[in-house]
Structure formats: structure tokens, C-alpha cells
Design a protein around this nucleic acid. Structure first.
Lengths: 145, 145
DNA sequence: GTCAGATACTTGGCCGAACAACAAAGGGCC
DNA sequence: GGCCCTTTGTTGTTCGGCCAAGTATCTGAC
């Protein structure tokens, strides 16, 4: 009983995800960012200063992952955290001015990532794959808890 | 410029992969295995003793990941490594007898994972998604190097 | 035989990601 | 006011995964 004979769809998801993440890593290389960090920065660039918990909600990370990722970005001067005046539990996160220098590179990397992922797929094929992934996501979402 | 507006397909791949892996983690919980370790064991159960590099080839992991994962499995008594008589560089890996006790649970978990991933999808929808993922995989594979 | 290059594996470092356990602060209820 | 529960964020631990660097061994060209 090999892996693919028991769970062909699951195995395919595994492999696609690994390939995709590795590609993202290669494309982000020049920015010095690791896959995932660009999600944080892009969210902060797009939505502005916000609480950590809201950031985590947007990119769907749990609190510890957000906290540690921000610590690393803060250490590299790409992110700033300041206490909220209205609620002493929360920290307001924002992208620093220094981080803006990376924005063009990051957006170029993501555009390229999408281009390579879509590849030579035809319009209808792209739409099909997108629908398929959305369907998978909704199905998996229901298994939570 | 939000993440999904720049790379909707890439973002979808991210989210599906994360949900899927989290689900695998929950299902494997009773076995005490972490997602990924079951791939190693299933390969060894199916294909028998083999070199680390061949194992890595099958599950598509790089050498350091294979080495460390095997160290952990060896520490837990699920895997045994012995030197090859014909080539003193290589180690032959095999699943231990103790690991066989986990086999039914692992295969049940994977069956359940596939069932939940497929969800309520119709036959044609399943075939479509599988084709879509295969197409994605082939496209991404070509970006290697 | 010798030496360069390929191959097999390990280790160190970094990161994302999950779970658990914790501290601090807020909010509602009595 | 005092109490309980929730919310926010942190740290500890473990894991998969990548790159880079290093060791040991094999192989092939000369």
C-alpha cells in the first residue's frame, strides 16, 4: 500500500504545495525574505497599522507564529511594534519606511510566482484550477475543529 | 495591492496546503506521528529496506530533511539504519517490527484524510481536481533549477 | 597509481507551523 | 469592590523544510 494508492489527492496536494513553496523561496531570495514573511509585509503595506491578532486573522496564522515572525522582521528593521493607547494588551504593528524599499521587489516576485504557477495554462484551464482549489479549500475548512 | 490581488492562484495554493497539512496533523495525532513521518514509514512498509537517498527520491525530500527525520524515527524505535556492505557511504533504512503496529492506524488516518479532502465532491469533480493538481505539478516541476 | 569530481550522508543555521503553558489585561456579573 | 472568563501576546518544544558547508567514500580519467 503506497502513499499514492491510499491518498492520491492528498499526495498531490502535498507535492504541489512543496514545489510551489520552494519556487516562492527561490523568487524571494533576492529580497532576503523567507516564504511567509512577504505575506506579513504585503498585508501591512496594504492595510496599514493594525493589531497582531488582526494581522494573524488576515493571513490565517495562529498567534505564536505571528509573534515570532514579527520579532524576526522587527529585528531586521522591517516592522515596528508600539503599544496601543486604548488597550494595554495589544501591540500595533506597522511596516517601517525601510521596508518600503522591498515593496517593488516583493511584488515583482509574487507576480513572477503567479506567472510561473499559471504557466502555459489556457484561460479556461486557469479558471478550472481556481475553482478546484476554492472547492478544496471550502471542503477542508469544514473539517476544522 | 493585497496578496490575493497579486497572486490569487498562489494564495489559494498556500491556503489549501496549510489546511490540508493541519488536517493531516489532527488525524495522525493518535499515532504519535507528525505530518511527513507517515510518508517515510509508508514508503518503507511498501518498498522495503533501501538507501536514504532512494527514500528521499521517492518522497521528494532533500538529504538533510531525510537524515534528520530518520534520526527522530530511529530514536523512537520505528526505523533501523545499517551500513551497506557494498558501499561504505550508504546506510540501508528499514522499518522496524515495532513500527508495524502503527500501520493500520496510519493507513486509516490517510484513508480518512483522503475522504475528508475529497469531501462531498462528485466523481467528475474529483477527476477534475486531480487533473488540475497534476497539471499544476507538471508546470511547477519545469521551474526547477 | 593518482587525483579530480561525483555521490551519500551529517551538521548547523534559519524559517514557518503546530501545540501547550503561561502572564497580563480587559469586561461583565454579582 | 471582587470574581470569573475571555482576549492578547509571549515563550518552550517539536517538527518539516531549505541552504550551505563539511566529511567520507566511490569512480573515472589520466
Amino acid at each position: 500500500m503506497s502513499v499514492s494508492s491510499i491518498g492520491p489527492l492528498s499526495h498531490a496536494v502535498f507535492r504541489v504545495a512543496r514545489l510551489h513553496k520552494a519556487l516562492a523561496g527561490r523568487l524571494l531570495r533576492e529580497t532576503g525574505l523567507h516564504p511567509g514573511q512577504e505575506l506579513v509585509l504585503m498585508t501591512l503595506w496594504a492595510d496599514g497599522p493594525q493589531r497582531q491578532v488582526d494581522l494573524g486573522e488576515t493571513i490565517d496564522w495562529d498567534a505564536p507564529t505571528v509573534a515570532r515572525s514579527l520579532s524576526r522582521l522587527e529585528r531586521n528593521g522591517l516592522v515596528r511594534r508600539s503599544p496601543s493607547p486604548s488597550d494595554r494588551r495589544v501591540l500595533i504593528v506597522e511596516a517601517t519606511e525601510a521596508s518600503l524599499a522591498l515593496r517593488p521587489q516583493v511584488e515583482r516576485a509574487w507576480t513572477e510566482l503567479e506567472r510561473l504557477t499559471v504557466g502555459a495554462l489556457s484561460g479556461p484551464q486557469q479558471a478550472e484550477i481556481r475553482e478546484a482549489l476554492d472547492l478544496l479549500e471550502r471542503t477542508l475548512q469544514r473539517t476544522d475543529g
